[in-house]
Design a protein around this nucleic acid. Sequence first.
RNA 1: GGCCCCGUAGCUCAGCUGGAUAGAGCACCGGAUUUCUAAUCCGGCGGUCACAGGUUCGAAUCCUGUCGGGGUCACCA
Length: 589
Amino acid sequence: MSIALNHFEYMRGCVVEILSDLASAGSLPVETDFSRVSVEPTRDPKHGDVATNAAMVLAKPAGLKPHDLAGQIIAGLDNVEAVQSAEIAGPGFINIVLNNDFWHQRLGEVLAAGTAYGTSTLGQGKRVNIEYVSANPTGPMHVGHGRGAVIGDVLANLVAKAGYNVTKEYYVNDAGAQVDVLARSLHLRYREALGEDIGEIPEGLYPGDYLIAAGKALAERDGKKWQTGDEAEWLEPLRDFAIEAMMDLIREDLAALGVEHGVFSSESELVGGGGVDAVMKTLEDRDLIYTGVLEPPKGKKPDDWEERPQALFRATQFGDDVDRPVKKSDGSWTYFATDMAYHLDKFNRGFADMIDVWGADHGGYVKRMQAAVKALTEEGGALDVKLCQMVNLLDKGEPVKMSKRAGTFVTLREVIDQVGKDVVRFIMLTRKNDAQLDFDLTKVMEQSRDNPVFYVQYSHARCCSVLRHAEEMFEANEINMEAMQKADFKRLTDSAELALIKIMAAWPQTVESAAEAHEPHRIAYYLHDLSAAFHALWTKGSKEDTSLRFLSEEDKPLTVARLALVKAFATVIASGLEVMGVEPVEEMR
RNA sequence: GGCCCCGUAGCUCAGCUGGAUAGAGCACCGGAUUUCUAAUCCGGCGGUCACAGGUUCGAAUCCUGUCGGGGUCACCA
């Protein structure tokens, strides 16, 4: 059982029970398949709380008209305790209104569960590996990395809340040519630290200032040990030193963003430990590796294209468009080859479900990796890849000009320091992962309704304000959690109050569907909608009908019931923000 | 040329895996402030869901094709 009732699932259960009864009574064929029967929210609240398509889906197999079957289902629904009314609409929908008691019970559930509200057992403890960030250890993170970091992190929280056993993983690309370049770049900074004039950083090396500190640290640790020697002598130790320094940098950035990985996997360890060779040998034995010649891409041909035979993986057998090289011309493994070994390693560690979060520029890589997983796990594993589109950094609507060379590059850390981690995390989720995102440094700090971070935080702060005022009006034991849970919820009858409860009650379903779809941005949208319902109730009480104000000296029982509503709302907001890794704000003066 | 993503209101974008009369914010127009925070709310205006076929009770959503925008295309990661 989940910690809260998913009322759509609950009502679906009721409908299916009625259908089963109809089947045993002979009104429906005994073997009728109910799998297409769904219970969903209505588009328009005027249509009721939930609607089912049962009559439309089953009319044909039952040999009945949708309306006739609907009539029989409605007769059954009238006997369901939670149902206030049910009626046929449109082509055969059954619109269902649930009674207030049912909604009041949901309110009690929220209070009982606290921020654990919405936690589900959907995943049944199944293990899922989510690999994200995996930024190359060659410098500090930029804003685009930050988006992937947030999407991966929140997706992990979300999937965990839906009942899966999640491992957050970072793949360290500490092998290959680029970390050699890093080592050479460090060597320059190291000589600089020892007093040499190194002049301009040559083209092709990393010019960033962040290596200066690493150079100094190396000079302090090792003195002049590597200053004059041959590259062959110092390359490896400097590489290790540089990677360690860069990973420290990245870990600091991640910590500032509130992101923490459980596992760091090293590419070089995988290669060094023979993991790649073993996997390739296995593939060769299965005749999935062969020596062939690739055709150059049609359209534009690369200038330095040379036709040559190379070791290819039969990716086309598993859904890819062409077979993919696993060896470079110098005989070493391609990145793809090591990545295959890495994904098999994850599978062998017990993760049949894998999710990778990548930048959109790696889009062309998805099919081959999925083909690889299919081949390596013999269909036992599944890989979903979330591609993150670019982040356009703006200030007051103008693009922020960035150049690595000119040293005007804005790092993720600078943005976090400027606007705060909570704002960064929230804004990163205000678009689907595969849509481009504008991040305006000024706009995200504005206190207005078109800033979703503020809008949601403000609704929570307003709650806290009400609860603070209540403390002056009541003795502590009159409005503690116990008292709120015993409050007379039946007093909450206004449409705006009930509307708020109904959206709160949709939280468990939101968690489950967003987790299943691997779409963390839905949480941000949900919280915005939930906040809107609260702001609406607030203003309704203060303007249209002051009897709807939360605090009333004259009617304390009613006030306690309303405080319970306020508390429950704040709890669901907090629960959602917890998934997003954002701290709820209690005051915004 | 192949592959992937995208095309929804003047602008920025949602649309819960196929549901009803397609939604929200901004902008524009008009309202609400003796207050628990008006940093908010309510109403109005605004659409050929790029286009053409197809699948079915039913399509913004799935399939095919066309047009337009972006990304990517051995030996980088």
